[in-house]
Amino acid sequence: MTDRSVPLLSISSLSVRFRLPEGILTACEDVSFSVERGESLGIVGESGSGKSVTVLSIMDLVSAPSVRREGNLTFRGQPCASLAAFRGRDVSMVFQNPLNSLNPSIRIGRQLGEVLEEHLGMPGPSARDRVVGMMERLAIPDPERMLERYPFEFSGGMRQRVMIAMAMLCEPALLVADEPTTALDVISQAQILHLFRELQRVSNTALIFITHDLGVVSQIAQRIMVMYAGRVMEIAPVADIFANPLHPYTVGLLRSIPTLGAERRGCPLAAIRGTVPSPLSPPPGCRFHPRCDAVMDVCRTQPPPPRDFGGRVVWCWKYRGEGA
């Protein structure tokens, strides 16, 4: 269990499909990645990229009868079907909208204390001390009084802090955050990102941070996984993604974001042409080929295999013959 050489979480060849009246919807296909202890991995993609489904299915939170899941998963080196058994204590989650995750009719103090009682069997008074301590770490002002309040009395930023406090109470080995700052204003977002960084610095919690915003992920992740239309395009350390992106999709995505800099002010943005394909009928071969400027014949028919460049992996035919 304490073997340091084994990644905390390892996923290989994960596919999730939904059977719908219109046909089979492939939400994600052949997704493989791993997360080390204490590491932060950012998953970036546009809507329909499969970034949320990938993680939700690992947590066993998509379990309709129409869902088919394939692939292998290991947690701390142990093969398991999903992380359901670890949820709450060893693995916890923070969602985009805290108002949907909190019970509106129960005081914050009880909702937080419940977590410790349920998972650690901690009695009321000591649970309360731990809750107050965690709220202080998350810069929630006047925690003793806040415990007596209801979720609606908090602002969006404060609610998200409460959610993060709840998720961190049991000091999980893995925290999964799905677009945790998307509903927030830019200043609250910066404050929450700062908190995530501080929490990571002092605890040994690994973080999977899902977002559509490349700017946000640059502030929080050590490694970035770029997804598009249900497939992984590229996984690389954060500095490499921004300084030297390999996949044409990553390159296009980076070029299309507006920047604060004065150099390109008033110039058109370098948009990626076309639109994201329907998940009901994804294009054959590389999913990005209909929008790619570097498209070759092979891209249209065969999905690209992973190319390993030592520490970074790219799924693109352009790098055939390179790497390992």
Binding site: S155, G157, M158, D185, V186, I187, S188, Q189, A190, Q191, L193, H194, D213, L214, G215, V216, S218, Q219, F242, L254, T259, L260, G261
Partner: peptide
């Protein structure tokens, strides 16, 4: 200034809270 420093920009890593408190 606070608004600008809160913009997450891949070119720079934020080091601290841009501004305290809430609106």
């Amino acid at each position: 200034r606070a608004l600008l420093s809160a913009v997450p920009d891949p070119g720079r890593r934020m080091t601290s809270d841009p501004v305290r408190g809430e609106i």
